[in-house]
Write a protein that binds this DNA or RNA. Structure first.
Lengths: 207, 207
DNA sequence: CCTGTTGCTGACTCATGAGTCAGCAAATAT
DNA sequence: ATATTTGCTGACTCATGAGTCAGCAACAGG
């Protein structure tokens, strides 16, 4: 008859609460989400949240850190190990990665960081050191290697790996601001990479 | 002796308050700024703010609308009237405009819209209809005209004017998130435009 | 069963900040 | 000078939501 009103699940609680918090923050932003909303989503009481996270801010930080997906690391490892030519790598794994970003959790993190970053500098640093910095460095090394191999020519792109990420960034902000307005983000990135390859390709005098 | 404690300046108050609010929101974001902070900045009392703006939200909207600068309209008019060749226009006025964006008030608006846009859909629509939409449409027409004139070839760029804005967007988000980390935004945009011109240029078989 | 431990609840306090308004004082009219 | 108008002030109320804690109930060990 009397179903237990709750179960004790100490080991799983933190992750459950962080997941619920991600969903809640994604909808309402940091300021617009009450800790009680997070708790209800996780199926626990407000008080429990405070047993695992000292403050709302700590919970927020846990959410951001939790999303630093393994995907970026995986791509970085791949670029070092691949046996593809530079051009094949760009058209294959790199393009696939870029296409996957706008539909992932990353735009949510970007939104939260843009909104709250100024008040949480350590979080922004964390994100730089674990995602943006390493990612850009990997692209830079990749271009450099292409030059060394004679596949690419040296150009401004050597100093500006951001040229690869620009359409990804625009796509994310577009999804955040205008989720209902169409944008063919896949084609945007394909075209950017075609332009980049044509621009830094070693072969001269082609069509 | 007794200096008047305040002056009555009915005509100027709204603009003064909006300016102060822009500065305050730029620093602390919407949720992080108290109406009293805005009032103090504008040198008035909190109550006065509510005589000119019914709520904090109305004040916020006034701030955003106030920044929809004339610059975008000016560029749009220019693109229709210029006597420059398409390539000269890109390397001249268009590049200059793009370079000017990261240092302008626009990144602040982007930050506020990204943070609060979901809760103010009418504001986002307003921004689309008065800035983003017309701007993209103008670029699209410009590319189309270049094709008609035989200066450009038809390509994916005809459907994706966002390719021009991608580095501008990235630069703005960079300035918001990593204001202390170096990024040569001017060179980023120059390179993007060079790539674009090379990609859509009508001349075949050049170096 | 019974008993001790502890994961968990939910009603509580309290700081904060949005929004109000009675009255004051600066400008203006007489 | 005096009266009248109204731009403006700042102390007030009140809703909200972060953070607390006394006690309850789920589970474990005997």
């Amino acid at each position: 008859m009397n179903e237990p009103r709750y179960q004790r699940r100490k080991a799983d609680r933190p992750q459950e609460i962080v997941e619920a918090a991600f969903a809640a923050f994604a909808e309402g932003g940091y300021a617009g989400t009450r800790v009680e909303d997070v708790a209800r989503r996780a199926g626990v009481s407000k008080g429990l949240t405070y047993l695992y996270f000292r403050t709302k801010e700590e919970l927020f930080k846990a959410v951001i850190r939790n999303v630093v997906s393994r995907r970026v690391e995986a791509l970085i490892r791949l670029v070092e190990q691949t046996e593809l030519s530079s051009e094949e790598f760009v058209r294959g794994p790199l393009l696939a990665f870029m296409k996957s970003v706008p539909g992932s959790r990353i735009p949510v993190v970007i939104r939260l960081l843009v909104a709250e970053g100024a008040r949480h500098p350590d979080l922004v640093d964390y994100y730089w050191e674990n995602v943006v910095g390493p990612g850009l460095a990997a692209i830079r090394r990749f271009v450099e290697r292409g030059v060394a191999r004679g596949e690419f020519r040296r150009s401004a792109v050597n100093d500006l790996p951001q040229l690869f990420l620009a359409p990804v960034m625009l796509s994310m902000v577009w999804k955040i601001l205008f989720p209902t307005r169409a944008l063919d983000t896949d084609r945007l990135m394909e075209t950017q990479l075609e332009m980049l390859l044509a621009y830094i390709g070693a072969e001269k005098g082609l069509v």
